[in-house]
Design a binder for these strands. Structure first.
Lengths: 146, 146
DNA sequence: ATTGCAATTGATATTCATTCTCATTATAGC
DNA sequence: GCTATAATGAGAATGAATATCAATTGCAAT
C-alpha cells in the first residue's frame, strides 16, 4: 500500500504542482490522528507545533487532498466543514449529535445499492453521495432527562 | 387535510407568536409553486409582487416554517440552502447537478430502513436524515462530450 | 551551482450568506 | 382603545471562505 505522501506527490506531479514544506506539514498533521477535523483546528494544531502556516494555504491545500482521494468532506456542523481520511477507510456514513457535536460512523452497504440503482435509472455521473443523520446521542439524551 | 395557513397559525398560537402580514405573505409565496427555493430568490419574488419584506424577516420566518413541519432544508448548493415543501409530500432524496444546479428527487424507501436500523442500534433520537447525491445530469454530460 | 520561471505563500482585503441590534411599529387579548 | 409583548426593517456585525498581489520558493534545464 502506498503512503499518503507518495499518493499526494504523484498527484501534484501530474498537475505540475509542487510538494512544498507547507503541503508536507499539512498532510503529515492530518494523517497523524484518525479524527475528523476542521480547518480552524488544523490551523491551531500546526501552530502549536511551530508551523505558522497561514489559513489561506490550508484552505488551498484541502481541495488538492480531496482531488488526491486522500480526504473528503464528512459533515457540516455549526457552519464548519469537518473532513476525514478516506484513503484506506471503508465507505461509511455519519451520525452527528446536534448537542455535543460527536460524530459516529456507521457501515452502510445499502447506500451503495441505492446509489447504483439511481445511477442506472437516471444516467447520472455521480461524484459523491452522502447519507447523514442528525439528532441526539445516547449521552445527551440521558443528560436531558435529569 | 388542513391548509398550510391553518397549520402555521396553530403553531404560532402554541408558541405565543403572531400571524403577521409578513409571515402570511412569505407562507403564501412559498406554497404558490412546488419548486425548491432559496432565501434570495424568495426575497426577489416577494419584491416583484410589491411586498418589500426584509431579508431579516424571511430569515426569521424560515425556522418557524421548519418547526411547523411545512418546509425543510433540501440541499446546499453554491453556498446557498435550498428549501422544499414537505407538507403533503412523500419522503424522498435528492440528486443535484454540480454543473447546472438542477435538482432531481427520487423515491427511496430503503433509506428509512437504514435509519430505523441505526436508530435501534445506537439509541439515537433522530431529528433529520438526508441522502444526497452530487454529480452531473444527463444533459450536462451530453454537452460536455461536444 | 546558477538561472529562469511558474507555482506558492502570507498578509490582508474582500465577498457573501446569515445573524444581531435596536429603535419603531404591529398584533392580539382584554 | 389600551397594554404587553412580539415583530419588523435598516443597517451593522459576524465569520467562513476566496481573491489579490508582492515577495518567495521549488525545480528543471543549463
Amino acid at each position: 500500500m502506498e503512503t499518503e505522501t507518495e499518493i499526494f506527490k504523484k498527484y501534484l506531479n501530474k498537475k505540475n504542482l509542487k510538494f512544498t514544506h507547507e503541503r508536507q506539514s499539512i498532510l503529515k498533521e492530518i494523517f497523524l490522528t484518525h479524527n475528523h477535523f476542521d480547518i480552524e483546528s488544523l490551523y491551531e494544531r500546526l501552530k502549536t507545533k511551530g508551523k505558522n502556516i497561514s489559513r489561506a494555504t490550508i484552505y488551498r491545500t484541502i481541495p488538492l487532498l480531496i482531488e488526491s482521494n486522500l480526504i473528503n468532506k464528512a459533515i457540516r456542523y455549526k457552519d464548519r466543514i469537518y473532513y476525514e481520511h478516506i484513503y484506506g477507510h471503508k465507505s461509511h456514513s455519519h451520525f452527528i449529535c446536534i448537542n455535543c457535536g460527536k460524530i459516529i460512523e456507521f457501515e452502510n452497504d445499502e447506500k451503495d445499492k441505492i446509489i447504483k440503482r439511481i445511477k442506472r435509472k437516471y444516467n447520472f455521473k455521480i461524484v459523491e453521495s452522502k447519507l447523514i443523520i442528525r439528532g441526539y446521542c445516547k449521552n445527551c439524551l440521558k443528560k436531558e432527562k435529569k
